[in-house]
């Protein structure tokens, strides 16, 4: 391939789609967890619900902008082709975005909702019928949204992984890698929002929950990336050649130093360092605001780089002899 058919807009979209999936999942989870019959993390649940729909909505707009003929994007909705990951993804993304907005609405504080509707002309009666309290259905929406958010998280990987002509993508590990990266990015975004929201003091319990969750997701991501590298290195020539792109080729530095180092291991180190005293020595968790800020920003940076590396390096890989390995 002489040029990149998919560029930065696709990278940003894949990142934002995953981010929303992660935000929704983490917030939904927080919504379900209870301590003594009381919601354990109401602030996280609300924050995530309010944030979740926006990245994916913005990302989808970018996706349409990237089309050669964007005025024809509606044709995506006139067809359903189960063999095409993009077709399935279109529907999945639409359903997820719609549900994320409904969920966001269900979490809207009463006064915000009233303020929103008071700005609309009173003659729009149909719209004013929508001014209802959906807070009783939050759990139902979250439950419907879990599989959709997981689906969107996986789909961003399947979109690439299903392309048999590109050995860099075409392994059964890319989908999971993107999913765990998405969940980790969403969790990190919540962490970032939590510490940046200066109006309310950061509760240690909220912080601990998010740090915990992120450690789990980053670890899962690592457990996918290592076999990806090992299996690829031991695979057939086409895959080996493809992997050379990050093992000596043009994307080596950005993969090892910036993504794996700064985007994954450093934040994991920070988060484990924060958690360790409370886990090993039974001390009370005392998270540092600045460390949480650094870790979450780095995780988001890493999540973006993962998409960047995969979109670009994947397009360079092919079954042709690439002149790197003989």
């Amino acid at each position: 391939m002489h040029e990149f058919n998919w560029g930065l807009l696709i990278v940003i979209y894949l990142f934002l789609g995953g981010l929303s999936a992660g935000l929704f999942f983490a917030a939904g989870l927080a919504n379900y967890l209870e301590v003594d019959g009381q919601p354990a993390y109401p602030r996280i649940a609300r924050m995530g619900a309010l944030l979740a729909p926006w990245p994916v909505a913005f990302g989808s707009a970018l996706l349409i902008l990237d089309l050669g003929t964007m005025h024809r994007f509606y044709k995506l909705f006139l067809h359903f082709r189960w063999e095409s990951p993009m077709s399935i993804g279109t529907w999945l993304l639409t359903l997820f975005t719609a549900l994320a907005f409904v969920y966001c609405y269900a979490w809207l504080p009463e006064d915000w909702r009233q303020k929103l509707f008071s700005r609309l002309p009173t003659t729009w009666k149909l719209i004013h019928h929508l001014n209802v309290d959906l807070s009783a259905y939050r759990k139902t929406f979250a439950m419907i949204g879990f599989p959709l958010s997981i689906g969107v998280g996986i789909y961003t990987g399947v979109l690439l992984g299903a392309v048999s002509a590109r050995p860099f993508w075409n392994t059964n590990l890319v989908a999971q890698m993107f999913l765990f990266s998405a969940l980790s990015s969403g969790t990190a975004a919540l962490l970032l929002a939590l510490v940046l929201d200066r109006r309310n003091p950061v509760e240690q319990r909220d912080l601990k929950f998010l740090v915990w969750l992120d450690v789990i997701f980053i670890s899962l991501e690592l457990f996918i990336i290592l076999p990806y590298l090992i299996h690829g290195s031991l695979s057939v020539l086409a895959v080996k050649q493809a992997l050379w792109l990050i093992l000596g080729g043009p994307y080596t530095l950005v993969f090892w130093v910036f993504f794996l180092g700064f985007g994954l291991l450093v934040p994991l180190g920070i988060e484990v360092y924060e958690l360790a005293p409370s886990l090993l020595k039974g001390k009370a968790f005392h998270g540092d605001r600045n460390l949480a800020l650094a870790a979450s920003a780095l995780v988001l940076f890493g999540g973006f780089l993962l998409r960047y590396i995969f979109v670009y390096a994947g397009q360079l890989s092919s079954f042709h002899r690439m002149g790197m390995l003989r």
Binding site: M1, H2, N5, W6, D66, L67, G68, T69, M70, R72, F73, K75, L76, H79, S84, M86, V163, S164, A165, R166, Q315, S318, F319
Partner: peptide, 20 residues
């Protein structure tokens, strides 16, 4: 008439036989 220009097919072709 149905092509939206997403270029997925160009990426999926192992022979790079398509152009935009």
């Amino acid at each position: 008439d149905d092509c939206i220009g997403c270029r997925y097919c160009m990426i999926a072709c192992p022979y790079d036989a398509r152009y935009f």
